[in-house]
Nucleic acid binder design. Sequence first.
DNA 1: GGTTGCATGTAAATGGTTACATGATTGT
DNA 2: ACAATCATGTAACCATTTACATGCAACC
Lengths: 193, 193
Amino acid sequence: MDAKTLCLGALMHDDASGYEIRKLFEDGLFSAIHDVSFGSIYPALTVLLEREWVTCRIAEQDGRPDKKVYSITESGRAAFLDAISTPPAPDKMRSEMLFVLSFGDYLPRADVMALVDRYIAEYRDRLLALESCSCAENAPPVRKFVNDFGLKMYKTAIAFLEDHRSDLMNQANGEANSNVEHLTPVTAAGGAS
Amino acid sequence: MDAKTLCLGALMHDDASGYEIRKLFEDGLFSAIHDVSFGSIYPALTVLLEREWVTCRIAEQDGRPDKKVYSITESGRAAFLDAISTPPAPDKMRSEMLFVLSFGDYLPRADVMALVDRYIAEYRDRLLALESCSCAENAPPVRKFVNDFGLKMYKTAIAFLEDHRSDLMNQANGEANSNVEHLTPVTAAGGAS
DNA sequence: GGTTGCATGTAAATGGTTACATGATTGT
DNA sequence: ACAATCATGTAACCATTTACATGCAACC
């Protein structure tokens, strides 16, 4: 699912600028579903314009920069429906946090604590954003379904982390990393990232 | 978090071949956390060998092809711990399924039904795989923590989808897509993907 | 005076997926 | 026979992220 389809999807709901589309995926209805950055949105919108799947008008605002508001065309709607009629790929999750946490027995306890707390904070922020996104009220049931799914998953994650935080703490190393005693100190230039 | 770090992490637990590492991310402990494909694992292992962060031996098996079993070295462990000591990036989810489902009001009801059912089946499969992965029993608590997190999230997703399946059905269009009546038929070459 | 939010865009770097290529063995 | 599992690897293609570039307005 490329950025073009994602943008078309955003425009199915309502006209929007590139900036506003991004906010939909950052804070709004789609925040629990997918990520898109400016670097993929703006080029995508350019291509969409060329294909006449969207039109563009410039909206002047006071106290703010002008914005380019895009609207989906009928052929754009058709192309979008065509795109989403192919079987969707399986969900993909990327959690560096869980990966790192799974090596908590190699890390100082204080680090693991900080990690879990930041993880909880991250999901609380996301939950707040999703809760306060207006989509829940007047949106059609399908949209509410997706919104509620995200809410449910976020709440579950937070609850799990809070409930099991102490379990993790007991496992992590107090000070000197007993599981890595045999290691030469970490010196090397760069690391594996 | 690149494939090199992911491979090193897999090898922290135990020696493994590229094929076995992939299975860890496909079916095993890491299946709820991250994806890696062969196309990124094999080149990563080659680089890891060059850097002497892993060693390699060839293991003959009967009835099966030989395999190259990799072991992490001490400098590899140090590099790994160095890599995971940088603050992890926020979780990223990519769900084409939820995205498409959120446009259920533009799709025939039968399609939406099939979609939800496949989605449920997908998560049931993942749940089974994660449940039957041996990591839960004798693994240290941190590993169990991550495993249980995945289990919890999968179960929650399945339960939500089963509970709300009927809500979605009521919303989706019976036959002729009443929300897209004004559309020209989908003809165009290719679609937006 | 510094930071945050609004707003658009480009280009380089990164790096991952997909498809291809090969081949043995086991189960149907 | 045919498909699936085990097993490794390469290369082209694809796309995204990140960093850079710019600028105004509001708030602290």
